[in-house]
């Protein structure tokens, strides 16, 4: 049988494709994801509580010792180190002046003599200035000896310097050496005489010294 729609086109019922949304599978999927999410967090909950309990037990076991360590650290840092640093800076410096004078007399090369020695300290900073003369010993050997003399003093000074702060005993001041020399002929005598200036100072001396 053939059906013929005789209605004008604008009055005809248009058939539109109905949207079929698969509510059930989507719902089931979302529910599944939700369940997995909830189970995963339940698992996390159990695990974190267990870890928390274990760590709390460990903490309780060492808490008293930790308090003891904190008190000791505070006592050292706030009072003891500060006081020792004060003594090192002002009252009882680790590098005595007499030791510096002794180093100079021990290390000075033969044929050299000093006309001026200056030593100044400002807290942990120090400067040693040496002015002297050296008889010529042939070519450049004197210059080498003078440089070695200054370097040896620098090394000894560095070795005897106290730490920057007792809280960190491995950090020490850097000591620098500067040597200048000038040679001239002796009046009426053979050979040359070399005048030298050696400055041995900690790196921060010029900024802090007054």
């Amino acid at each position: 049988m053939i059906f013929i729609n005789l209605l004008p086109a604008e009055l005809r019922i248009k058939e539109k494709r109905k949207l079929r949304i698969p509510y059930r599978p989507i719902g089931a999927g979302v529910f599944f994801i939700f369940v997995v999410f909830a189970i995963y967090h339940l698992f996390l909950y159990v695990r974190i509580r267990e870890e928390h309990r274990t760590l709390t037990q460990q903490w309780n076991a060492i808490q008293s010792k930790s308090v003891q360590a904190d008190l000791l650290e505070q006592e050292l840092g706030v009072t003891i180190f500060a006081e020792v640093d004060f003594y090192d800076d002002f009252v009882d410096p680790p590098l005595e002046t007499a030791r510096v004078l002794n180093l100079i007399s021990t290390l000075i090369p033969n044929g050299a003599w000093l006309t001026e020695v200056k030593f100044a300290r400002n807290k942990k900073e120090l400067e040693l200035f040496l002015n002297g003369f050296s008889e010529s010993g042939g070519k450049s050997s004197r210059l080498i000896e003078i440089q070695q003399f200054a370097n040896a003093i620098k090394d000894q000074v560095e070795a005897h310097l106290g730490p920057l702060t007792q809280a960190n005993p491995n950090v020490k001041k850097t000591v620098k050496t500067m040597v200048t020399t000038s040679s001239q002929n002796r009046d009426g005598e053979k050979g040359e005489i070399t005048q030298f200036n050696a400055t041995i100072r900690t790196e921060g001396f010029s900024e802090t010294a007054t």
């Binding site: 002002f90 009252v91 009882d92 410096p93 002046t97 007499a98 003599w113 000093l114 006309t115 001026e116 020695v117 200056k118 030593f119 100044a120 300290r121 400002n122």
Partner: peptide
């Protein structure tokens, strides 16, 4: 080395 706190802050020796 004196058994009281004495500190030398600067020193200059001239020939």
């Amino acid at each position: 080395l004196y058994p009281k706190n004495l500190a030398l802050t600067s020193l200059e020796i001239m020939g």
